[in-house]
Design a protein around this nucleic acid. Sequence first.
DNA 1: CTGAAAGCGCTTACAG
DNA 2: CTGAAAGCGCTTACAG
Lengths: 338, 338
Amino acid sequence: MQDVANLANVSLATVSFTINNSKPVSPKTRAKVEAAMKDLGYRRNAVGSALARGRTNVVALLYPALQHRFSVTSMQFFTSAADQARLRGYTLVLWPMSNEAEAVSELTSSGLVDGAVLMEVQLDDPRVPELTGSNVPFALIGRTRDTSGIPFVDVDFEHTVENAIDRLTELGHTNFMLIDGGTGNQLLGGYGPIARTRTTFGEVTAQRGLTGVMVSGAASSEGGRALAREFIESYPQTTAVLLLNEDAGPGFVAGLQRGGLRLPQDVSVISIASSLDTASMAEPELTTLASPADELGRLGVDALIERIEQQDAPLPQRLVKCSFHPGSTLGPARSLGD
Amino acid sequence: MQDVANLANVSLATVSFTINNSKPVSPKTRAKVEAAMKDLGYRRNAVGSALARGRTNVVALLYPALQHRFSVTSMQFFTSAADQARLRGYTLVLWPMSNEAEAVSELTSSGLVDGAVLMEVQLDDPRVPELTGSNVPFALIGRTRDTSGIPFVDVDFEHTVENAIDRLTELGHTNFMLIDGGTGNQLLGGYGPIARTRTTFGEVTAQRGLTGVMVSGAASSEGGRALAREFIESYPQTTAVLLLNEDAGPGFVAGLQRGGLRLPQDVSVISIASSLDTASMAEPELTTLASPADELGRLGVDALIERIEQQDAPLPQRLVKCSFHPGSTLGPARSLGD
DNA sequence: CTGAAAGCGCTTACAG
DNA sequence: CTGAAAGCGCTTACAG
């Protein structure tokens, strides 16, 4: 930078002013400085700048480490978040968290990042109070139980479940099943998407006098096949399935058919909050209420940057709806005699 | 940091020495300093440290932006690379590259990262000379055409193709097809995995007097279904398929069966350099030579950090083999009369 | 509109 | 083993 200043016959400060547009600079001075920068191939050092400004323009994406089964949907968060950050002049770092408390404080106290976007949010996520206390700006992709004062973007699970049930009800279905990807452990017990979906499913089926059962299975193709066997053995009356378990989808569909059921003549299945990529791997292709994953990644970063750049702006809290894609697994309920 | 020094009645320098073990510190002084740090909840600021040391302990993962269809395999690179970086005291940033030249120089001249790992490497990747010229350490996940002097980790595609052909030859197959995910554009024409696989496939089938055709299709379920239609219409003699197109796998298998072919009685399919997650979404499950994706992400970061920390160490260049997973799509060649 | 100087939070010769 | 001081590459009041 000093070299640039020398070559342009100006001071260090003036170079800084032209780079950052932080003070008015006369056109000729600006031209001289820019020529000098070009000649020397100069680019401002991000670390020096960060130290002086107290801002790094780096944001972190926090995701659970050791959970190495990432769906297509998570991948979309990663890349859309990184792209959007870049677009807005930030760099995205991946921050795997194994030990929640320690990792969060390591993050917040390092001074490396200006803020964090959290993925895989639990209803009572321990990271949230930790971050609130640390004064590091953050935003959630997902929601805690109590969202007051907390910036977030999330799928509108409540609407999604109702929408799916509506569509199936119109086709005459009255016997519903919700399949989720929860495992027995406590962690997933408090996982937002599953909890909200189950609650809404329970409420809506009860209100409307529908039969509704809930079942969980592993988030994998093998999990899906196992769920199909369970379905065939234990739930002969059920004709409509809401599937909140993206990765089990193709296996579930394959398993049902292997067990002699036809889709959608015998059973209708709708995959919710999941990706079309995975849905299309099933045969027949799954009818889907697709997760707006790209949009969530983008909006999550936007929400965070808003918090960083203008603390007084209105709190960003957005619910995004899933989009319907027909597929081939939705049909009229089979009549009682079938 | 000054606060810590005051509380412990030592100098700023001594605090730094104890934190970094950069100079011997007496046990009692160390104890005082550590107590003071704990009391104040002090953590060293990464930015100040980076500026003084000329090292940020941040490494970048460069991937092609705008390519929003990431397979499970890419996801594994992302997360295993981030985990390994963290394990070795580094932070991983995601660096989407749209305009190659500009983005690389933005990276190298920002001073933000100590080095970069490159994904989706082309045979003549323009990023490589750019990085070589910039003196920023880097390592490839993949390989350029000429690998002399370049640190990399990659799948041993040559071995993988031979292995797949061996297995099928033993089952009596003589009519082979290679399906890849290349699109017509130049970009993918020079994409390492496809180029190497095609070359090896051509050589091995020729050497052994086997019939071998090569076909490309879109990397999606729909692409797989289209490939199946093409297969049935145009290649009735072919009994053995090597599939280098992970995302087309389930659709291809479904399409073949929809067209009346049985797997593996009529056609054997082996998916290569792909993930088991996707393979298991096919029905029947695809026989697979699985990509060591986690290992590659980890080794890629290791290779980079070696270059950063000891420039004189032997050049890290590693080829990793795929692992065989049986699945249900490999069987004896149908006899001529079938 | 331009410049001299202090300071961001650390590290590291250098001296003791 | 410990400390005083310079310096890493910037930004930004402050003065002109």
